[in-house]
């Protein structure tokens, strides 16, 4: 039993699967993190990921190109982000309730549009998704080649995005302003900057990331869209942000760790499936997310202004 578990780590397929499972989570978590660092909780994530998965897929299905499809998904995500920020940033409505409303709206619209475009499809139609590319030299390496260097271009892009986000967040004036909007909006205002615009921008960019994360599922991991595809991944991302203590580097590690456990769960079913019902394996991602929040709760460093709307000239 224990040997079986250890053996999993020695297969390249396990590491490749870990990376594949991690990708949508990485983008979702980074997206949520950007929103929250600017002081806005975005519970629209589950719906925005659904919308991204549907719209990117639909773009390609209707004859578009894969990369412009990703752009399209990002624009759709940013649009829902704009909607969320009009309600929460500009009108100061409850971020919890608005987020749930955005999730409802984005998923309902996605399902409606999908049904409208494809009225009768019992088997979901397929597109030609991103294909794995072999990097000359690297992909031929034993083990590592299969585990790390034979993924789709979108996968490599996601891993390149994270250091970029870290750089922007910590080393540029834009990143500083964004973090200030989440920690001390009054100080930002005193610097002569517009808190509302910065928060709006952050939520739009963050939501675009979420949507592209959703699109990874329909355009790289699979090649079809089906209902219930996101299946709580958005909520898991919200938990991962807490686990990562609002730091993008830790978010990447958290998503990878989480995906590794998920990939292991799938493989463990093969030898433990006889005496443990499969439903308990399927529970693990959700249980792990709760556990992750519990473990990190004591060290959690919330952005100070998270959840509090900013009104100009108002003293807190």
């Amino acid at each position: 039993m224990l040997l079986d578990l250890l053996e999993i780590f020695l297969t390249a397929g396990f590491w490749a699967a870990t990376i594949r499972i991690a990708c949508p989570l990485i983008l979702g978590t980074i997206g949520e993190l950007i929103c929250e660092r600017a002081g806005v909780l975005n519970l629209g994530i589950e719906g925005i990921m659904t919308a991204g998965a549907m719209s990117g897929w639909m773009w390609v299905y209707l004859g578009g190109d894969l990369w412009t499809g990703l752009m399209f998904a990002a624009i759709i995500g940013a649009t829902f982000g704009l909607l969320h920020s009009i309600f929460t940033v500009h009108l100061g409505l409850s971020q919890h309730v608005t987020g749930i409303g955005i999730t409802m709206l984005a998923s309902a619209l996605s399902f409606f549009i999908f049904r409208m475009m494809l009225p009768e499809s019992t088997t979901p139609p397929k597109i030609t998704a991103f294909q794995p590319v072999n990097i000359p030299g690297l992909s031929d390496m034993p083990f590592l080649g299969e585990a790390i260097f034979s993924h789709t271009p979108m996968t490599y892009m996601i891993f390149a995005i994270v250091p970029l986000v870290i750089y922007v967040l910590y080393k540029t004036p834009v990143g500083l302003a964004l973090r200030m909007a989440g920690e001390n909006p009054m100080a930002l205002e005193a610097q002569g900057m517009n808190v509302l615009s910065i928060r709006t921008g952050a939520v739009m960019v963050g939501s675009a990331f979420m949507a592209v994360g959703g699109a990874y599922l329909t355009m790289s991991a699979f090649d079809a869209f089906f209902f219930g595809m996101i299946n709580g991944r958005g909520w898991i991302c919200v938990a991962l942000v807490i686990f990562a203590s609002w730091r993008p580097g830790k978010a990447l590690l958290g998503a990878l760790l989480f995906a590794g456990l998920d990939a292991m769960q799938v493989r463990a079913q093969q030898f433990a499936g006889n005496f443990i019902p499969y439903q308990f394996f399927l529970m693990t991602p959700y249980v792990l997310s709760i556990a992750a929040m519990v473990v990190m709760a004591r060290q959690a460093r919330y952005p100070k202004a998270l959840l509090s709307p900013f009104r100009k000239g108002e003293r807190t």
Binding site: L43, H96, N231, G232, W235, I236, V238, A239, I242, Q279, F280, L282, M283, Y286, V287, S289, I290, M293, V294, A297, R298, A300
Partner: peptide, 21 residues
């Protein structure tokens, strides 16, 4: 522990549904 109840209650939905399954 000040763990946000939104996320825990949402995630428990999935756990409970799988248990019923």
């Amino acid at each position: 522990l000040k763990v946000d109840e939104v996320v825990t209650t949402l995630l428990l939905n999935f756990v409970i549904l799988l248990f019923v399954n």
